[in-house]
């Protein structure tokens, strides 16, 4: 039971990182990316390769993951500078589909469909450490950074870009630089989450980095409340505990648990958008411009 709870807590912390970093670009900068799982995946493969080929040092794995995901996030920043709204969603959908194919096909780097197996446990100074404290520390760091950035000049600039980018530009804000920085920060965070995920499970494959995963992260942000600090975290915990709760309901056959879970969160997404578009923790008056 404790092992089950520790596993759930670790996955919740990792999802919390993913949801918080996605919220940073969706909620504050108005960049609606449905390609977050791509950067989660890049980090996971990067971190896993560091652990497999070099040393299973979690800090090095996270650093490499953040550099790879942050660097390649320019693929997402480029369309974000060019287009907005539906066009950007379409571009990020395209990026997600191409990346999933790449993950499945680049066998030397990603192990193909079979994935990477036997990723060593993380070690610090020769002792094996569990991933949970590392994930919690990373989550705390990202929440702290988000809160700081949100209140500072950078966050204000982003919010002004979200609401009216030409107005922000006319006030002398460098819109392109701010958007790019926001995307790099968010994607590097997703990369760290990926490295922790790989070290925690010791096994990764492309299944975890597909469009479904991107939509699930998006659902966490939307259900919790985009543009709030704690909303995405609440959404992550809710969506992750859903399968556990469903498996305790006796009349659902175990083979259908996944489908029932998806139906519940699909319904929740639709109903929330109709009746409470700002999410559970969102401010209704502000929500209209945010979500």
């Amino acid at each position: 039971m404790t092992a089950f709870l520790i596993n759930l807590a670790t996955l919740a912390a990792i999802s919390g990182i993913l949801a918080s970093t996605l919220n940073f670009i969706v909620g504050y900068a108005g960049i609606f990316s449905v390609a977050h799982a791509v950067f989660f995946g890049l980090g996971a493969y990067g971190g896993a390769q560091v652990a497999l080929l070099l040393v299973p040092n979690p800090f090095l794995a996270c650093l490499v993951a953040a550099v790879i995901a942050g660097g390649l996030s320019l693929c997402l920043a480029l369309p974000a500078l060019r287009v907005r709204g539906e066009y950007f969603v379409a571009a990020s959908l395209g990026l997600q589909m191409v990346a999933a194919t790449l993950f499945a096909e680049l066998k030397p780097l990603t192990g193909g469909i079979g994935g990477l197996v036997g990723i060593p446990r993380p070690e610090i100074l020769g002792t094996i450490v569990p991933v949970l404290p590392l994930a919690l520390a990373a989550l705390a760091l990202i929440l702290w950074a988000t809160a700081r950035l949100q209140r500072g000049t950078f966050g204000r600039t982003l919010q002004s870009i979200r609401d009216a980018d030409s107005a922000a530009e006319s006030l002398g804000k460098n819109v392109n630089a701010a958007k790019t920085l926001a995307v790099v920060f968010a994607c590097a965070g997703a990369g760290v989450a990926g490295a922790l995920y790989a070290l925690h499970l010791s096994f990764i494959n492309v299944e975890s980095f597909t469009l479904d995963q991107s939509i699930q992260i998006m659902a966490m942000v939307i259900i919790g409340g985009a543009g709030t600090l704690w909303g995405p975290l609440v959404g992550a915990v809710l969506l992750l505990s859903l399968p556990a709760v469903i498996s305790f309901i006796p009349f659902i056959p175990p083979t259908e648990v996944g489908a029932v879970q998806q139906i519940i969160y699909g319904t929740a997404m639709t109903l929330l958008m109709i009746f409470r578009p700002a999410g559970l923790l969102g401010d209704m008056s502000k929500g209209k411009s945010t979500a």
Binding site: E86, I215, Y265, M273
Partner: peptide, 28 residues
Amino acid sequence: IQRHEGSFFTVFVAAFGVSIVVQNIIGM
């Protein structure tokens, strides 16, 4: 959604929710 002037993203998420639900019901 349009009655309360929801943005395009509200519409996107709501429609995506429906497509997830229908996909799983058909699968079942």
